[in-house]
Structures are given as structure tokens and as C-alpha cells.
Design a protein around this nucleic acid. Structure first.
Length: 219
DNA sequence: GCCCAGGTGGGTA
DNA sequence: TACCCACATGGG
């Protein structure tokens, strides 16, 4: 414990924000669609879009049967509604065609790689969305690398500043033990929002300042 | 009015 | 492979 950089960081984050116990929530399909709605969208708006969808339609089958226009109208508040409505409808149709039902729980029995490849085969599902379904619904150790984690990891010097999100996912995931992924993920995001945000990181308040390459080079 | 929130896919060199 | 852009809305 604490004998390498990422572990020291995890421990400092847990001291600041608490240890997050790994709880799975929701079914995989709801997690998938909720995560699509969250892509490039603020939390507040993506939650509203998801709630509108749940309120307007009684289940995912009803969403599947709805017109693109109806879906678009329901999720409009989240932005990017045209493209997301099409992706959601196409994914629902595709799942039904492949599995014969809209139940994605069979993914829990697959290996993490098989489940990830299945999710990535859909248009509109990239590494971050797949990782969220794996981690939050299926309980499989997979690290979603969103813009916060990308930025904070690069500033800390955990990964090179030039690597893309997909590569960053692999590199970071290899550095951190499975049982710590969940807590690390949530705390890095909390930290990225509160202290190490994109515009002006509040380095003077930062519990990770000793570990931070960005601080050493820019302050 | 402006900038920020914040993933994926497609195009170009 | 690396980089650039489109996609769209709400809030400070």
C-alpha cells in the first residue's frame, strides 16, 4: 500500500473524499442508455433527459417502438438529441435482433473482454460508455476514462500528455488493482470537478499537489 | 452574448 | 497514428 504513485494518489483521494464501496446499480441496458445520454453533456441535463425518457415511456420496449421524433423530443434537454435518439433506437433494435429480447444480463456471464467487445460493437458506444456499463451495472473491473480522469491523470504525470482516451484507459487500468478501480474512478472525478478543473486548477487547496507534474512545471 | 459542461465517429494528411 | 471537427442544450 502506498508504495507506488497511483496507490499514493488513491490513498490521498480516499482520505479527502472517502473510500467508495463498490456497489452495482441498475440493469445493464438502463446503464447503457443513461451513459449514452451523458456523453458530452452535463450531469444535470443528462439526468433530466434520462428521467424524461423513463417518464414518457413505460419500458425500453416502448422506447424501441417509438418514433425517432418522440425519442428526440423526450431527450432534447440533454443536447445532441438527434444523434442520440437514433443511436438509442438502433441499439434497442439491434439488441432485440441479436438476443431475441432486451435483456443484457447475459453479459454478466461473459469475460470482461467479451462483454466489452459486445458493447463496443454498437454505434455510439465507445470505451468510456462500455466501461461504465461494465463497472456500474455488471460489477466488472473496468475504468471509465472521462475528460476529468484524462486531464487529472495527465497533470499528475500518471500518463503521457499525448495519449488518447482509449490508450489512457488501458494504461491506467493496468496500474490500479481491480478492487480499487471503483473508488479511484469516483474520487478522481470528484477531484477533477472540485479542485483540478480544466480552467484554473486550485492547486493551493490540492491534496495531490506533492504528486503533481503540472504544479511543478507551471507554478 | 460567451464560455463551459463533456464522448463518439468520421474525415484528412 | 494524430489531429480536427460536428453534434446541441442549459447554466453561470
Amino acid at each position: 500500500m502506498g508504495d507506488n504513485k497511483i496507490d499514493r494518489i488513491r490513498i490521498l483521494l480516499e482520505k479527502e473524499y472517502g473510500r467508495r464501496e463498490w456497489v452495482t446499480h441498475g440493469d445493464p441496458l438502463s446503464e447503457l442508455i443513461g451513459t449514452i445520454l451523458s456523453q458530452n453533456t452535463s450531469d444535470k441535463n443528462s439526468h433530466r433527459a434520462f428521467e424524461n425518457l423513463r417518464r414518457r415511456f413505460k419500458d425500453w420496449e416502448e422506447v424501441r417502438n417509438a418514433s425517432l421524433e418522440e425519442i428526440r423530443e423526450a431527450i432534447k434537454v440533454g443536447g445532441l438529441a438527434q444523434i442520440k435518439a437514433k443511436r438509442i433506437k438502433d441499439i434497442l433494435n439491434e439488441i432485440l435482433a441479436r438476443q431475441g429480447s432486451l435483456d443484457l444480463w447475459f453479459l454478466a456471464d461473459l469475460s470482461i473482454k467479451e462483454a466489452r467487445d459486445y458493447l463496443l460493437s454498437f454505434e455510439g458506444v465507445g470505451p468510456k460508455t462500455a466501461a461504465c456499463v461494465l463497472l456500474f451495472a455488471l460489477g466488472k473491473p473496468s475504468l471509465p476514462v472521462d475528460t476529468h480522469i484524462n486531464r487529472v491523470s495527465k497533470r499528475l504525470g500518471l500518463i503521457d500528455g499525448k495519449v488518447g482516451a482509449d490508450k489512457a484507459h488501458n494504461l491506467l487500468q493496468k496500474m490500479i488493482p481491480d478492487e480499487d478501480i471503483y473508488s479511484f474512478h469516483l474520487n478522481m472525478i470528484a477531484h477533477g470537478r472540485r479542485i483540478c478543473h480544466s480552467r484554473s486548477p486550485s492547486c493551493e487547496e490540492c491534496v495531490l499537489v506533492e504528486e503533481c507534474d503540472y504544479f511543478r512545471h507551471n507554478m
